[in-house]
Design a protein around this nucleic acid. Structure first.
Length: 569
RNA sequence: CGGGGCGUGGCGCAGCCUGGUAGCGCACUUGCAUGGGGUGCAAGGGGUCGGAAGUUCGAAUCUUCUCGCCCCGACCA
């Protein structure tokens, strides 16, 4: 490609709303442009990278035996009503009517459609297992789209669905997808981890996420220091403390704590560590009442764990200040479990405390020296907190550390969730109906591109992992318009490289060197050849890899073999 | 949805408080110079200030309504 014929500008300045590096760099380098909230156009440069991601995905899916198909983005409401998700999915599902007033949705995912295909086409256990996949647009009406294509409303997804005669086959198919994902992300040159996950609204029990590790990631991942245990903090188990609860040493007393509302203030005011205090949080129950959660002052409530407990509204909703007042007689900031009427779930660590501090359900008052079993009933213990760095690993070996990740893939063993609801069965060996077992496997294709940039950039711009770079080589002639030697050398090299099948971009613009260098770094093409009059007089050109600090001079005749030896294909 | 903020040439912003008919940087066009890390000089094109209503002799500026967007929290590839 000749850059002089590429009309998309690189930008020095960037829209004020672009916050994360990948978004900024994608805008600045001319990969994408925003159309509306959460909607992006992929310009030619960006599309090349997107296609590379797609190609790797296709190759590995095909290698794993999956079959590509493509389903409509627009889906009839009937299917969603059948699976029960028309009412469950909520406002994230974009719904609309056609001219005949029939209801449709723009697909946020395709379990219903594929299950419909499966139940129509699959008749016999002999046709199983089978795995269908597609790479296609999804729309999820996110509450808050942000970070460019990282969390867009319309995005490209690879989704795959497998069908099996039994659980063993499902586990095998799932494993095959795990391996395929591992190969894909490895081939893309990404630093990633597979982690244990929560099923969320898709459902299913066995499930793992693939995360690209990056500071800007929206998810927290817990890792064991000693083995390969890794889990999303949403789901990572906090082990109950081993030590027995210390015996009560103090009597319970009510103390005045004027103006104290947070654990930090409480801890500073009473000069006790936050870990000796207890935090009480009220959430909406499933039957109109409120439910209390008690965690240690230095711990955080884990919403995913909490909302699974009996009597708790799912999704979790914090009680309003008015509801808190109604239930306890005090404002949030002064509430506690002593005398609370209703369900109280207590985190293991909080249940282990003796002589602790908590709110007294009275403005500006707290209790100190509180003890379970004496001052209030023995607690209903549950794991309801987020794990923290230093916690023992649930795997039993090592302690946990926490890193951030961007979720680029998620695989599930769904079991018979959808096949049962939608009656998807085949005949087994005995001629009896057998409800199929399903797995589903997603990759956020557009998100992968953003994640790759989050992980691979420097102050100057993108540093593409070679397999994802829009072009492999950039030929950068200086003074191309004025020097006929430079021009003919650049043109020849460009043609030769292209003829060899190398993806090459030629910066033939009439621009100053500084502009070309800055754009080269911004766009991040891995291999760069600079052709300038100075070294050309010596019969040489300069080679530099985007990752290198220094360039090296090579003979013109060596340029092509030099590149061929270095390009990773 | 709850809380905060912003809408002024393509982008980044100033002007608004204290009404007087719109300005700066980048980008763009033309010319000259320059030519190894976002070059310099000169000339130019482009906005009616998100929209509507109102107050006023006069509104980007004040008032009301409305639309859109962004940021912080609960969702997901």
């Amino acid at each position: 490609m000749r850059l002089s014929r590429y009309p998309i500008n690189t930008l020095k300045e960037v829209p004020a709303d672009a916050e994360v590096v990948s978004h900024r760099l994608m805008l600045r380098s001319g990969m994408i442009r925003r159309l509306a909230a959460g909607l992006y156009t992929w310009l030619p440069l960006g599309l090349r990278t997107l296609h590379k991601v797609e190609r790797i995905i296709r190759e590995e899916m095909d290698r794993a035996g999956a079959l590509e198909c493509i389903m409509p983005t627009v889906q009839p409401a009937e299917l969603w009503k059948e699976s029960g998700r028309w009412s469950k999915y909520g406002p994230e599902l974009l719904r609309f009517k056609d001219r005949h007033e029939r209801e449709f949705a723009y697909g946020p995912t395709h379990e219903e459609v594929i299950t419909d295909i499966a139940r129509r086409e699959l008749r016999s256990y002999k046709q199983l297992p089978v795995n269908f996949y597609q790479i296609q647009s999804k729309f999820r009406d996110e509450i808050r789209p942000r970070f460019g294509v990282m969390r867009a409303r319309e995005f490209l997804m690879k989704d795959a669905y497998s069908f099996h005669a039994d659980e063993a086959s499902l586990a095998q198919g799932y494993r095959a997808m795990f391996d395929a994902y591992t190969r894909m992300f490895t081939r893309m040159g990404l630093n990633f981890r597979a982690v244990q996950a929560d099923g969320g609204s898709i459902g299913g029990s066995v499930t793992q996420e693939f995360h690209v590790l990056a500071e800007s990631g929206e998810d927290a991942i817990a890792f064991s220091s000693e083995d390969d245990y890794a889990a999303n903090v949403e789901t990572a188990r906090a082990l109950p403390p081993r030590e027995p609860r210390p015996a009560a040493a103090q009597a319970m007393r009510k103390v005045a704590t004027p103006g104290v509302h947070t654990i930090a203030e409480l801890s500073a005011f009473l000069k006790v560590p936050a870990s000796a205090c207890v935090k009480t949080l009220l959430v909406e129950g499933s039957a109109g009442e409120v439910v209390a959660f008690v965690v240690r002052g230095d711990h955080e409530l884990n919403a995913v764990k909490a909302q699974k407990l009996p009597g708790v509204a799912n999704p979790l909703r914090m009680a309003s200040a008015a509801r808190v007042r109604e239930a306890t007689g005090a404002d949030p900031g002064s509430i506690g479990p002593v005398g609370f009427e209703g369900t109280v779930y207590v985190d293991h660590a909080a249940a282990q405390l003796g002589d602790f501090v908590c709110g007294a359900n009275e403005a500006d008052m707290h209790y100190v020296g509180v003890n379970w079993g004496r001052d209030l009933p023995e607690p209903l213990r549950e794991d309801v907190r987020n794990v923290q760095p230093g916690d023992p690993s649930p795997s039993g070996r090592g302690t946990l550390r926490i890193a951030r990740g961007i979720e680029v893939g998620h695989i599930f063993q769904l079991g018979q969730l959808y096949s049962e609801a939608m009656n998807a069965s085949v005949l087994d060996e005995a001629g009896k109906a057998l409800t199929m077992y399903m797995g589903c496997y997603g990759i956020g294709v557009t998100r992968v591109v953003a994640a790759a940039i989050e992980q691979n950039h420097d102050d100057q711009g993108i540093v593409w992992p070679e397999p994802l770079a829009p072009y492999q080589v950039l030929v950068l002639p200086l003074n191309y318009q004025k020097s006929s030697q430079v021009q003919s050398c650049a043109d020849r090299l460009y043609e030769d490289l292209a003829a060899t099948g190398i993806e090459v971009m030629l910066d033939d613009r009439d621009a100053r060197p500084g502009v070309k260098f800055a754009d080269a770094d911004l766009i991040g093409i891995p291999h760069r050849i600079v052709i300038g009059e100075r070294s050309l007089a010596q019969g040489r050109v300069e080679y530099r890899h985007r990752r290198d600090a220094q360039s090296a001079e090579i003979a013109i005749a060596e340029a092509l073999p030099h590149l061929e030896a270095r390009i990773e294909r």
